[in-house]
Write a protein that binds this DNA or RNA. Structure first.
Lengths: 346, 346
DNA sequence: ACCCTATGCTAAATCGATTTTGCAAACCTG
DNA sequence: CAGGTTTGCAAAATCGATTTAGCATAGGGT
């Protein structure tokens, strides 16, 4: 009952606390920030101050602290799409990690639009965020470069820009795809198609590269006809139609590798729409897991992203940059292996 | 090339701009805040100031503005789970709506833990958010009450507390369930089970109520044995097992109404695990849609939440409270109708 | 010519903290 | 016991804006 008030009655200021304790504001500040010893405040007085702080439940006004110290204790998290399952899961882990380090997250999405990404970065920097966690959209290279030029702490996730010396964390796309492809070839699938998204980002290119390399390694000729690129913002129905056309155009194709979970879901629709059975009429593997893939009969085989590891590593890299102590960072460009999960589809 | 610098070279302050323009800081402030006329700044001088602002690309330091004005232009959004599809979709709409009004969002989740919710509210109020959008977890009633007592702008979504005079927006749970139940009864299903979550929240109670009332209206006795309550944090496998047991225990049950999409997905797993066919062996309807339900054969019939409407209405109610002009708010407790979507499962 | 009100802008107070500087009193030291 | 150093704290500057109060000069009326 008694300690229920101080929460925000009229917002106690540090000055008020000082007055109550009969000391100067600076003294209170020193005590609260653990600089009492350093500033030679007597233990006796420090205790008196702490007593008042406890009793009143005083909480520093974070905006004022922010203004004075220049530290907002806030990080900007920019993802591609706030409702995508991969990004949502990522955000969730990052949120709790940030909390452990005493940071808050401002969470926003580009919807894969470089212009919006650019605006968001500007917005966040106006908001004085201390660092950035970004899953970059195509075309955001310049913006990232600017952040770097201004020496702002940044970590990229899920993708990166080959030319930029910026810390990043992402799955080993090449190896992930290769593992999946090897599995398909092992199981005897002969004519394997690849459906990907039409974007410039490295992770997309790497996945395609993984497909091509595996085939070449097995002495199989890569045919462009067996590769389908779908526009990112192409409407659902249209995408489904083009996947179906793709299947029809490739008679004898017995398996498809989908390069993102979004495409895999479209694939499910397309295949079902054609009345084909998975895996008998058509096998499939998808890069990046999704709830649906666990459930959709017969279960879709996937290369799963180690989301928790990615998020934690990224936070670690960011904290490293934020740390004043600037300990030398061994390696700031990290690729983590994906996890191949076999289900019924291949 | 030329307007590429001013972005954050050394952070230009208002004082710097003033110096460059050869005027007082206050003058610059007045001009920038559209109070030039009111403060009788000559148009000529105002233009001169604006010219300098444009040229330098000056951006006000929002933290300083925040401190001085007490307005953070930030809203707190607390959802139940950041990775739940309903909440993610909600967050997405709210984010863009907030942007339209010039607000930023700090986005966090309770993971259905009242203690964490409580902490989050405290954290957000320390961060000086201007308002709160909350999907409350059970047990957060006191926290909401405190916000109200401190006259903080709040809007609840997805649930509310019957005793509290607080604005809220949610789907009409009762009517939604009734519509689904009527459909099942129309189609001739006789023995309908209800699977829900074991929580105290009104929306959960209302859904159960809808089930019971519909049966009673049709002269059917409600049997407790046909109602299954599953603990919110009960592990997946255990939940699946209890649903399967529930089905076995109710011989002759021909349809199940699932009260949340999470439960519906578990239901899918359970039914498939028992080797039953939907809808022939078991029909189902689920409250709250999900991507899976569109895809999972034969498609799951659902009562869909009008997420966009909920989000927009909630933002409207919040903006209403934030508006100084305090225009009288007609109605601040809103229920919006759900959308019944028929697919193959019932 | 004198007072009074507009006009057009600047100076200074303020938000709530942190940090540097300052200044007594107490404590050596020779 | 004079002179220097340490101790213990307070005063004041600062972060970057907004806002109130103030102060010349110009114009208008009698």
């Amino acid at each position: 009952m008694k300690d229920m008030k101080g929460q925000e009655m009229k917002r106690l200021s540090l000055k008020d606390v000082a007055k109550m304790a009969g000391v100067a504001p600076s003294t209170v500040s020193f005590v609260l920030n653990g600089k009492a010893r350093q500033m030679r405040i007597s233990d006796e007085l420090a205790e008196k101050v702490m007593a008042v702080v406890k009793k009143t439940g005083y909480q520093p006004h974070s905006v004022a602290v922010n203004l004075r110290t220049g530290q907002s204790k806030t990080l900007g998290l920019i993802v591609e799409s706030i409702s995508g399952s991969f990004f949502a899961a990522l955000a969730r882990v990052i949120e709790t990690e940030a909390d452990r380090f005493g940071y808050n997250i401002v969470y926003c999405s580009t919807e894969n639009n470089a212009q919006k990404g650019s605006d968001l970065i500007r917005m966040l920097s106006r908001q004085q965020v201390d660092g950035y966690l970004i899953t970059p959209a195509a075309g955001m290279e310049k913006d990232i470069q600017q952040l770097l030029a201004h020496k702002r702490p940044v970590v990229l996730m899920d993708s990166y820009f080959p030319g930029l010396a910026v810390p990043y964390v992402l799955i080993d796309n090449l190896a992930g795809v290769k593992q999946g492809m090897e599995h398909l070839l092992d199981k005897g699938y002969k004519k394997i198609g690849f459906v990907t998204v039409d974007m410039e980002l490295v992770q997309v290119q790497d996945r395609l590269q993984g497909y091509k390399e595996t085939l070449r390694d097995h002495g199989i000729t890569v045919k462009n006809k067996q590769i389908l690129k779908i526009g990112y913002s192409s409407p659902r129905e249209e995408s489904v139609r083009s996947i179906q056309q793709f299947i029809k155009d490739n008679k004898g194709m017995d398996a498809i590798f989908f390069s993102t979970n979004y495409l895999g879901i479209l694939g499910l629709e397309s295949i079902a729409g054609l009345g084909l059975k998975i895996p008998d009429d058509m096998a499939m593997i998808c890069f990046d897991d999704h709830d649906i893939f666990r459930l959709y009969p017969p279960g879709i085989t996937v290369v799963q992203q180690p989301i928790e590891e990615i998020a934690k590593t990224a936070m670690g890299l960011l904290m490293n940059q934020l740390d004043k102590s600037q300990r030398y960072t061994r390696k700031s460009q990290v690729q983590v292996p994906g996890k191949f999960i076999r289900r019924g589809s291949a």
